[in-house]
Write a protein that binds this DNA or RNA. Structure first.
Lengths: 217, 217, 217, 217
DNA sequence: TATGAATGAGCTTTCATTCAT
DNA sequence: AATGAATGAAAGCTCATTCAT
């Protein structure tokens, strides 16, 4: 009795799981190829081949190539956006330590290939997908600036930081991270010189905290 | 007699000039369109239409679309490379002033649309044109870092700057410029918030010179 | 005991009814869509959606799309063919009245959407389905002509009609009906001018009975 | 001197001639195939093969398949429309003779394959190309009715015809022609029975002039 | 019996490239 | 040197049909 009613539900649920998996496989394959060749040069045939499905199957999951790109971006952006949701952690020590800790932690997260390559993709395709560029501006860049601004403002309020415009300081603190994200998956792979982003970030923070001009104290 | 000999030369010269002009018109048209739509989405038909020549003519000047892109990039990169040829100016004042002056001057030059948009193009098409990415790394990025390194090193030698690794300091000083170049022609056009690169550069230099942590002196 | 035997029969009967209903639903949906978009432009997906069944189910009832079309036509042609089975009614009055009555009655029946739109469909798809065109010729047109011929022949025998070839007279009498059937579901829906088929048929019969040239009697 | 100026003109003119020929070849090939298989079932590949050009060439002459169909129809409709431009000829005899002459002449013209098959095509594709159906209604059907109406009205005015509504008489007179046009290229090719449209038209006119009911005069 | 996800051949359309003029 | 009509390989997308469930 129960069986007759639950059977279709189970079937549907299993299908749903399968459908979701297929979709993710397509998105993953597409991300790799978009990253590798850019939007226009990526052939749908390659995407479906890499995802292990047929051409027709693709159109069961996405209305067209454009939507695929949009979905790839939005899906992978979610992670980056999540980071900007973090509150400033409870921290009783010096604001410099908080900042150091926060910035290098940030880099560790956004340096993940899927996160940083999406940033580069958006930069590359901004002309063709303006709404994605706008989305990235609002939901990632602006929110990140606001978050770092808060930390800087806290530092100023506690007398740990000099009285500087928190927004432009935040922008300054984030600029090497954004640059690294973009270059990591474009220019740097073709760079002979070994370059270690982590240590660069560390020395950057050190530099910005204490300044280039020596102190007398 | 003399005339008979020089006439063809003059004619050839005029042709040469015409030929060169055609080439430049094609390069200019291509730059605009590559910038607008990216390499793959730019149709040769649109390039020749904008340059005011026929499709066939294009192939008298370039072997194919790929070469066109390469030429567009190399041609416009020349300017940026020129900047890295500059010697450190004779300057007897404080190294901080030299640096301030140098960095903001640099920005003024590379913020020119043709210069900054080429950087973004290279980032966008690095996957398809690795040799251009490598070229940019070597001929622009590395040379710029070296140049700024020298200034920092000079400052350290004169006791104007703290004893820091000049290379990573240079990287730090250049990172907002590189980021601005890339974002100026991709993300920022779709940004609501007014953002003034010049004043950002200024406050960035100020911040990096004196540091975020207040001084006791 | 008896029950045990009849029960499965009843069940089967219900299934049969259900099965038949499904088939009819598919045929009805298909007719609507074929009429609307033609054979080639009608997607099976739309047919099954309109019939409320799944794609796979369709193939339990029809071997393929071609057969579906054939079945739609044959099913709906049955009605038109039925009309040609009618005997000439017993009628003792003037043959002109019989003809008038018969022709306008005929139009009333074949003007039903399902009947007339099938005629237009066959005309439209004759190139792709020649056997249906031949079928229509034989089973509908020829039989109709024969039927009307009989009425005309009767009229001639009774001295009610002039001595004319009954077959070509029948063709003449049927031609506006065939034309109306075809145009009703193709050209006329896009006609601004109001056009009333019924009154046209009436005046057509009047005209053909008494002639365009005035009589002296 | 002259040569330098006229050469490009000549070249352009020759090209123009070639271009026009190509266009006509494509239209002719398309007409044949649309007539044979209908719009949707006609593959562009077959059209270009029959016209002897490549796939790409097609798109130099037409923006897409839809436009091709529209052009095929409009181009070939021009002829049919031309007929409706004819004035009623000067004729001093009996209006019955004028009508007889006019109608059978009309049929001779519209029975040309290109003219009649276009009518059938419009009927078949009216659902997909409503604007063509409307165009045909206005520019062909309505004008034809008006033209024949004038002849009938003339006959009534001269006492040659009975006082009947000229419009419905015209419709009645044209209906077998329209029916023949449509059926000639759809149903009749699959008809066993020999059927001669010309003699049918003749007997139709005779019938309609003198009427089915015998005269006493 | 019924489902609907999956297929892939085949369609329309695009565009870098060629070549006769 | 310059043209632009012509090409055809390859792309995105559709849809009748199949099949595991």
């Amino acid at each position: 009795m129960n069986q007759r009613k639950t059977l279709p539900v189970l079937v549907k649920a299993r299908w749903q799981r399968r459908k979701n998996a297929r979709r993710q496989e397509l998105l993953a394959a597409a991300l790799e190829l978009f990253e590798e060749k850019g939007y226009a040069s990526t052939r749908l045939e390659d995407v479906v081949k890499r995802a292990g499905v047929s051409k027709g199957t693709f159109y069961l999951y996405f209305v067209n190539k454009e939507e695929l790109f949009t979905m790839v971006v939005r899906e992978n952006l979610a992670e980056a956006i999540e980071y900007t949701r973090d509150d400033i952690p409870e921290f009783s020590g010096h604001s410099a330590d908080l900042l150091r800790c926060f910035i290098s932690g940030w880099w560790q997260r956004v340096s993940a290939p899927r996160v940083s390559s999406i940033a580069r993709l958006i930069v590359a395709e901004a002309g063709s997908f303006p709404e994605l560029a706008a989305f990235y501006n609002e939901e990632v860049l602006e929110r990140s600036v606001k978050l770092v601004s808060n930390i800087v403002a806290r530092g100023i309020a506690q007398g740990h930081f000099t009285s500087i415009g928190p927004a432009s300081a935040a922008q300054a603190l984030l600029s090497p991270i954004l640059m690294l994200m973009i270059c990591k998956s474009s220019l740097y792979p073709y760079n002979d010189r070994a370059f270690d982003p982590e240590s660069f970030i560390d020395s950057f923070i050190a530099l910005i905290l204490s300044g280039l001009v020596p102190r007398n104290d």
